[in-house]
Design a protein around this nucleic acid. Structure first.
Lengths: 236, 236
DNA sequence: CTTGACTGGTGTACGGCGTACACCTAGCCT
DNA sequence: AGGCTAGGTGTACGCCGTACACCAGTCAAG
């Protein structure tokens, strides 16, 4: 009875199974080699079978984003600043596991419900901390994508990993000399960072440190505005 | 002599002409309808002709980015804070004219020389203002993509325009009621913004204001660190 | 003045993509 | 038993980027 054997060996395909396989595929080989055909092959199924469960590729990616967002820790009660800080750092950890996600999230034109729910609960934490809707609004804009755990670096190794698959840790790699000559200021900060042994090792600078530096810069500024009863009706 | 007529009516195609046509096409119809074939047609030429001037599509996009970056005002001498603020706001104006550019820039894995030159001169402005290489380094990370004039909004009308072509100004559009019920905190800040007549009109919130709010929040925080002689060897 | 190399536009073709559409099959309800 | 339906299949279309062979001028060297 090969019939039964086949049935047993292949779980019956579902939106959920498709999304998980898609996330795994993107994690492993990069978002740009995620195609309906590859994904179907991974699932042992013909490409068109997927369309019985997802409307099209865009909707597939939306679903993948929701899977990722669901991995972020739920909010904890307590001081707004600590709560938001912890949540954002948790989001960052999640996105480090899914390096394709930032680009995917940004390339969507409208947020998915799961992202909206995440943002909503973050605003909730601010309001619970006594923020006016006015200030809460501007704060959300100011945080931008950082609230979802990624800073938009122009020069981001993680981003690169998202494209080409698993991260291969690169050698420290100072700028090549002709670059250093053309961009002396970049060279200065790059070499300072990579030779500054006590806070960094390896790839030149400590991404986690940079992320927290920027995050705290924003949070401290926000706290100051909040304490001073800032409102958009007066000047900053 | 149709030969000469043809020659006159069609300029001889060059990398520069291709890049400009590509930027115009992306500005007009969105980056996702920029294909080698469409572009060639706009130029009255067969697709493969482009490959005599650009190596491939990725390199084409790199060139387009350089065209855009070249439109940013050159740095002005003077107080670092004013200089950087002005420059970044200029970058923002440029990117508003090319809404496809942020996504294009971010999707590149390595920065183009023009972008590096821009970043280098920005670092130069900081160092001229007395910043240590250490602090300048962290500042660049903290600013992230904002230094190039775009904040990474999760909910960005401009981004949408970049995908589908010219911006059609939408009606004010409060959240639909079932959204408001599911995301009460987002609803609160959204309706507050769109009904708050004295600072905003139209699409719900004033993007320029939000951008400057975040920018000044960062710049003020940075200024404070700078005044206090901050260094990464001590705690923040 | 010929010739041969070089530059730049052309035509054809291939493999990959997303997905429309018709089909088939198994299980379930009546 | 008969038909409905959910879900997997096969084929096909139009788009994409681009490899490769070709060909028309231009221009320098013989």
């Amino acid at each position: 009875m090969p019939k039964q054997a086949e049935k047993v060996r292949r779980a019956p395909l579902s939106r959920d199974r498709i999304l998980r396989a898609a996330v795994a595929l993107a994690d492993g080989t990069g978002i740009e080699s995620l195609s309906m055909r590859n994904l179907a092959q991974d699932l042992g199924v013909v490409p068109m079978a997927l369309y019985k469960h997802v409307a099209n590729k865009d909707e597939l990616v939306d679903g993948m984003i929701d899977v990722v967002v669901a991995e972020i820790d739920p909010p904890e009660p307590g001081d707004w600043k600590q709560a938001i800080r912890r949540r954002i750092l948790s989001a960052r950890q999640v996105l480090l596991r899914h390096p394709w996600a930032p680009l995917a999230i940004e390339s969507r034109s409208t947020a998915t419900p799961a992202v909206l729910a995440y943002l909503d609960s973050t605003v909730g934490a601010l309001r619970a901390g006594g923020f006016s809707t006015d200030l809460a609004h501007h704060v959300m804009h100011a945080m931008g994508s950082r609230v979802l755990g990624f800073s938009q670096e122009l020069f981001d190794a993680t981003r690169q990993a998202g494209r080409s698959g698993a991260t291969v840790p690169e050698p420290p790699a100072d700028l090549p000399p002709e670059m250093a000559a053309r961009f002396p200021n970049l060279a200065a900060i790059a070499t300072a960072a990579s030779h500054d042994g006590d806070s960094v090792v390896g790839p030149g600078c400590d991404d986690q440190f940079e992320f927290e530096f920027a995050l705290d810069l924003l949070l401290d500024g926000i706290e100051r505005l909040h304490r001073n009863g800032w409102t958009s009706h007066r000047t900053l």
